[in-house]
Amino acid sequence: MIDRLSGVVVRKYPNSVVIGIGGVGFRVEVPALSMRDLPGEGQEATVFTYLNVKEDALHLYGFAGEDERSLFSLLITVTKVGPKLALALLSNYRPAEIARALAAEDARTLSAVPGLGKKTAERLILELKDKVGDRWIGEDADSRDGASDETASSGEPDTISLARAALAELGMSAAEAEHALRNASVDDTVQTLVRRALTRRS
């Protein structure tokens, strides 16, 4: 699992950011509020990630803080709420605001998010109102920044996971990537693993 990416912000797009690590650029989809919290292009950044694994694809989502990622992981456990809706929520509200709306059973606030109707808002409340607790309620930017500073120096994710994500960006299926990296070593660089995997594929 890719826990985080620490590298240079190569490019910022409206809904995603490219983080450069070891000569490989990882494009990560991020919510709008996390995008605002990230530094500008050319600067160092740490993005906390969630790797969504499907049979035919690997999709990487990123967040400026661990609180956003944790809430994202909880939101997508709700029936009929996928990554797209979870990102929409986190693009419009901070985790504390979402948690307060859930705890207060405030369907009106939740359903104000584009693409999230009243029934989905009510389902979110039903399934999550007893799970948010005090974890996100009351959190602010200072606590989020503190978490980022504390973890930014803890190192990059393992090279095999990074190579797997890079191969997915290059159009390789999850099964193909696993097969291509079956004899990979964590001592190899990301570039070496990706180059070797592409050679085997051809």
Rank of each mutant, 00 (worst) to 15 (best):
L51M: 15
N52L: 13
L90A: 10
L60F: 07
L58D: 04
F72Y: 07
L51D: 09
G82A: 13
A32P: 00
I76E: 06
L58A: 10
A45Y: 01
Y93F: 15
A88R: 12
N92R: 14
P83C: 10
F63P: 02
V78N: 07
P39A: 09
A32V: 03
T46S: 08
V47H: 03
L60D: 08
V30G: 00
K54G: 12
Y61W: 12
G40K: 11
L89K: 06
G42C: 08
P31T: 03
P39R: 10
F72I: 02
Q43L: 11
E29Y: 06
I76Y: 03
Q43D: 12
N52R: 13
Y93Q: 11
Y93E: 09
A64S: 15
D37Q: 13
I76K: 08
P39S: 08
T49V: 14
L75I: 07
P31H: 03
A86C: 10
E68I: 02
P83Y: 10
P31N: 03
A45D: 04
K54L: 12
K80N: 15
R36H: 04
L90I: 12
P95V: 10
L75M: 10
G40D: 14
E44R: 11
G40H: 07
S34P: 01
T79N: 15
I76A: 07
G62Q: 11
R94M: 15
K80W: 05
F72L: 05
Y61A: 09
G42N: 08
F63E: 06
T49A: 11
L74K: 10
S70H: 02
F63D: 04
T49H: 07
A64K: 03
G82H: 11
V53K: 11
K54R: 15
F63K: 06
D67R: 07
R69F: 01
D56T: 12
A64I: 04
G40E: 14
V30T: 13
L60C: 11
E41Q: 13
E29L: 04
I76W: 03
P39L: 09
P95R: 12
L74E: 09
E68Y: 06
L74D: 02
M35Q: 06
A32E: 05
S34W: 01
G65M: 06
S70N: 05
S70A: 14
E41T: 12
N52H: 15
E66L: 13
G42D: 09
T46W: 02
K80T: 13
N92K: 14
A57C: 04
L85W: 02
V78Q: 07
P83M: 08
F72V: 01
M35C: 00
A88M: 10
L71V: 02
A86L: 09
N52K: 11
E41V: 13
S73P: 00
G62N: 10
E66F: 04
A57M: 08
L38K: 04
F72T: 01
M35Y: 00
T46L: 04
L89G: 04
Y50H: 15
K80L: 09
P31R: 03
F48R: 04
R94S: 14
E68R: 02
G40A: 13
F63V: 06
S34V: 01
N52S: 14
K84R: 15
L38R: 05
S34D: 01
H59E: 15
Y50N: 10
T46G: 02
P83G: 11
G40R: 11
E44Y: 01
V30E: 02
E44C: 00
A57H: 09
G82P: 08
A88V: 09
L87H: 08
V81I: 15
A88C: 12
